[in-house]
Write a protein that binds this DNA or RNA. Sequence first.
DNA 1: ACCTAACCTAACGTTGACGTAAACTGTGAC
DNA 2: GTCACAGTTTACGTCAACGTTAGGTTAGGT
Lengths: 153, 153
Amino acid sequence: MTPTLRDVPTTTAPLYRIGEAADLVGTSCRTLRYYEELGLLRPASHSAGGARRYTEEDVARLRRIRELQELLGFDLGEIGDILRSEDQLAGLRSEVESGVTPERHRQILAEAIEINDRLRGLVRAKQSRLEAMMQELETKARKYRARSRELGS
Amino acid sequence: MTPTLRDVPTTTAPLYRIGEAADLVGTSCRTLRYYEELGLLRPASHSAGGARRYTEEDVARLRRIRELQELLGFDLGEIGDILRSEDQLAGLRSEVESGVTPERHRQILAEAIEINDRLRGLVRAKQSRLEAMMQELETKARKYRARSRELGS
DNA sequence: ACCTAACCTAACGTTGACGTAAACTGTGAC
DNA sequence: GTCACAGTTTACGTCAACGTTAGGTTAGGT
C-alpha cells in the first residue's frame, strides 16, 4: 500500500465514520443525518465516495447538542440558534479580522454574551429546582428508613 | 342566598375548576384531561353537572408531574409508575392497617425506597452534569468579558 | 330568565424527533 | 475480484404529548 497524499504530513487526526460517531455519543446514524438536515452539524469532510467523515471536534459539537437537548430541554431549533451564534463568534477569531467592522464585531460579541447569560440563568434555575427536589427526596428517604426500622427486617 | 349543606362545617377548602388548576401550573385544560386519561391525576371531586374540581393537593400532584417531566425528563408512563408506587405507600398509612400483611407492607415500602434511591441517583447525576456545564459557561463568560474590554465600548 | 364564559365528550389533527424500509453504492479485508 | 458490511438518498411511518374543532351542557352573575 503506497502512501497517498493525505498521509504525507504527519499522523493525521482520526476521522470517524457516521456509525462510529453515533456510537460515541450513544445515538443513531439517522439522528446525525437529521441534525445535518437541520443545519446543526455538518461533517468536516467526506470520503471520495461521499461518505461522511467526522472529526473529534464534530463529535464534541454533537455532544454539545445532546447536552443542550437533554440537560436543558431545548428543542433542536433553539439549539440551532445557540450554535449559530457561537459559530459566528468563532468565525471572527479565525478570519482575517479585516472585512468585519468593529460595530459588527461588537454586535456578534454582544449576542454571544446575551446567550451565555441566558444559558447561565437557565442552568442556575434548574440547579435550584433540582436542589429543592433533592431535599424532598432526602426527607422522604429518612421517613422510609424510619418506617423500615420500625417494621423490623 | 341561604347557606347550603356544603357550607355548614366551617370555611371549606378551595376547589379549583380545571382552567384555574391549569393556569396555576402554567399548562392547559387539555393537558389535565390527558393526564386523567392516562390515570395520572384524578380530580378529587366533580360538580353536580360533572365538571372537574381540583383540590390544592391535586394541584400539588400536578406540579409534581411537571417536575418529573421537565426536570428529570421522564415520560408520562414512567411518571405513572412512580406516582402509583407512592400512592400505594400513602394508602398503607391511611387504611386501617389490618388487611395488609406485613410482608406486603414491607414489599411496598421496599419499592418506594428503591424508587427514591433511583430518583436521588438521577438528580445527583443531573446536578453534576449541570455543574460541569456551568463551569464551561463561566469560563466562556470570562473570555467574552475580556474580549469585550479589549474592544472598548 | 337569560346570557356568556367555562365546562363536557369524542374525535381528528399536529409537531418534533426521530425509526424504518427500499434500492443503490462505497470500503476495505481477503 | 469479490464479498460483506457500512454508507448513501428518498420517502413514508411512528409515537408521545398534546392542540383543535364540533356539538352540546353547566355555572353563576345580572
